[in-house]
Design a protein around this nucleic acid. Structure first.
Lengths: 206, 206
DNA sequence: AATTATTTATTGACAAATAAATCAAAATAA
DNA sequence: TTATTTTGATTTATTTGTCAATAAATAATT
């Protein structure tokens, strides 16, 4: 292991530490209220150190965005490869996001509330990365539509937006405790309720 | 017309002027970037005048929120009274929001991106007002579920969140031009695609 | 109806507050 | 010994909120 490699590893580690803290602050105060001082405090690190690892505040925000998107993308890409049936594919995406929501609520909060549709975010190249998730998802639908498993008159774009929009709103409701879901069982139920309603609106009656 | 009434009318007019400008700025810069100086400029009014009509910045933001929510609520409450069938009710809510999106994009932008789920917003009593929309909607579903028009195993809470989440995401896509919808016809199609998929996922097969 | 007084609206410069970014010095690691 | 990391006080920048001065509108007085 070269010195340069070790150094990079250390740098990555610190950046990750700071980003994680930043995400917590972000979740608590939102895009508008986030302050470098808070991030430093949350990370138990001095104010100046944040500027050692990031050029400026903008740079920290971008890092938050990138990290969030990548996790999100990977889940969808995996699902599109591994599973066989449509229900399996959509089910595994749903399950992944439901679980993430339970295990890393602050993290999901940032993705859902802030990353997806903030104007700041949309300005950047990141938007392209994000819409990739939509495109991957829509491709799955189109594929199964060709196979005749979806009604022919389904507008796959509308369906794609309905999937992510609906899912986002439910997860949001859970994170905010507007939808009660403490128990593991409840979680599982909500997840399957969602996927059932979504699918049965898509698949042709037999 | 009493003097006091005229004065109030003038005050209301100015407040509305400023709020409208604030909404434009909000749509352009988001919650984080909004500045009193920008609002004053957009309203073509001096900096200090904003403070004559509003106590502080907070007060301006709250006014934006209230105005947005009320329009939103009225649409849903109206639909729940006027229309007969489930499809009619859901259809008129959908149509209203689609039209609003076309006619007052900045306004809808604020509702969709900022008002609904920003932490600032959630702290306030406004959240109660907003979830009222969800409750009214869910009552419609429950009513028709009792009549036997919905499958018995439908979770109406999940369905409610799916409705608003899906709709929000599609409208967002349109506003951001990720979904192309210049023509009136396209708009109408998207709207009916949405409602069809949503309903057919809800109603029992006959 | 004209004049004066009083209230209200409007302005923009300025002070106060807040937060970002810098930087020289200290601590630590190589 | 040298390079890198870490610190936090200081500086710089930005933005809120205040305020005294002016303009306009309304009311009172002659």
């Amino acid at each position: 292991m070269s010195k340069i490699y070790v150094k990079k590893e250390k740098t990555d580690k610190m950046q990750d530490l700071i980003i994680k803290a930043a995400i917590k602050v972000y979740a608590a105060k939102g895009m508008h209220g986030i302050r470098i001082a808070d991030i430093a405090k949350e990370a138990q690190v001095s104010y100046g150190l944040v500027y050692h690892y990031f050029k400026n505040k903008e740079d920290v925000l971008n890092a938050i965005f990138s990290k969030s998107i990548n996790i999100f993308l990977r889940a969808i890409e995996n699902a599109s490869v591994q599973d066989k049936t449509l229900k399996e594919k959509l089910g595994s995406i749903t399950t992944f996001l439901f679980n993430a929501c339970r295990e890393f609520p602050e993290f999901m909060y940032v993705i859902m509330f802030e990353v997806i549709w903030t104007p700041k975010f949309l300005e950047t190249r990141n938007f392209v990365t994000f819409t990739r998730a939509f495109t991957i998802f829509e491709k799955i639908l189109i594929e199964y539509q060709k196979k005749g498993e979806l009604k022919g008159d389904i507008n796959t774009t509308v369906s794609t937006y309905m999937f992510f929009g609906g899912l986002e709103m439910i997860l949001t409701g859970i994170v905010l405790k507007a939808i009660p879901a403490e128990k593991h069982e409840t979680f599982h139920n909500l997840s399957s309720n969602f996927i059932n309603q979504y699918i049965n609106g898509l698949t042709a009656a037999r």
